[in-house]
Design a protein around this nucleic acid. Structure first.
Lengths: 152, 152
DNA sequence: CTGACTGCAAAGGGTTTGCAGTGCT
DNA sequence: AGCACTGCAAACCCTTTGCAGTCAG
């Protein structure tokens, strides 16, 4: 958690972006924003929900979801990993890396010897034992690029 | 899809591993294995389900799930991305990379200038436009390492 | 004031589980 | 023949949606 002082400049950013998007700055949005910005872990909706309950006793979980997605749409936060609506399986046991489409979730393997040899910084070892190092390239696949702009 | 010929040596591997684990090689497991190994995309359970229906007209979706998780437990396949499926949010907009615990899903950011400068192979551009390149380090965090072996 | 926002509750969709019949070893 | 495995259906959990009252601008 971060002290209120530190998040002040970020709150100005929130105010700005919401105004620019033409949406209202509500008490809920303010507190949810403070909660997610103040957390260095990568909270799920429920964690945010629990975290803001002290300050917003009547807030509901679905408002947390709606608000977080609003922030994500405005570019104030991002989501972790590919759009993971379903579990996906991978029979490729060789070292490889991924290209993931941020629109549709399409995932393709590619091989790269250079990436296979990546050395992780020592500090990362403080988190735990390392099993695998994979590069994830995010972008928009050709199909989604083509579809863009024309009526879905 | 891959021709039956190509998957033959892999099937021997399946037979081996199942025997070693003391579980039976059933018709369903064989076909599901062929389906997932024969796919270079990263199919979800439903896709596998549809794919094996021709050969297994009465198979059920839950058997597909059980079988895929069995394979994953035996190390015959892996799953894509972190283990659990709650959506997680990230307020860190700076370029950064992730350490992810494969047991509990705990995710931590780390910064690495060298990783920020990674050049992706040209061939990857054929998949689509590139927005972001992130390194994902998978391992087991200290907490899970400590818990290992002792009764949860 | 007024339209956007919230809270409630119920629906939705992917995944898992309990149970009894089936079939492989 | 025994026992793991499968299919069925219902349960489960996270997430989204429709609606009516509420609040920011």
């Amino acid at each position: 958690m971060v002290s209120p002082e530190e998040t002040k400049p970020q709150l100005a950013h929130l105010r700005n972006e919401l105004k620019r998007a033409g949406v209202k700055l509500t008490h809920q949005r303010l507190e949810i924003y403070r909660e997610v910005v103040g957390s260095t872990e990568h909270p799920d909706a429920e964690t945010i929900f629990t975290g803001v309950r002290d300050r917003l006793p009547t807030v509901s979980l679905d408002t947390v979801y709606r608000t977080l997605w609003l922030f994500a749409d405005l570019g104030l936060i991002t989501t972790l990993g590919p759009p993971r609506d379903r579990m996906r399986f991978d029979a490729n046991l060789q070292p490889h890396h991924h290209f993931v489409c941020s629109k549709c979730g399409m995932t393709r393997d590619f091989r790269c010897e250079e990436f296979n040899r990546l050395q992780v910084p020592d500090a990362v070892r403080d988190f735990g034992g390392i099993e695998k190092v994979q590069v994830e390239v995010t972008g928009v696949c050709h199909r989604c690029t083509t579809r863009e702009g024309q009526g879905d």
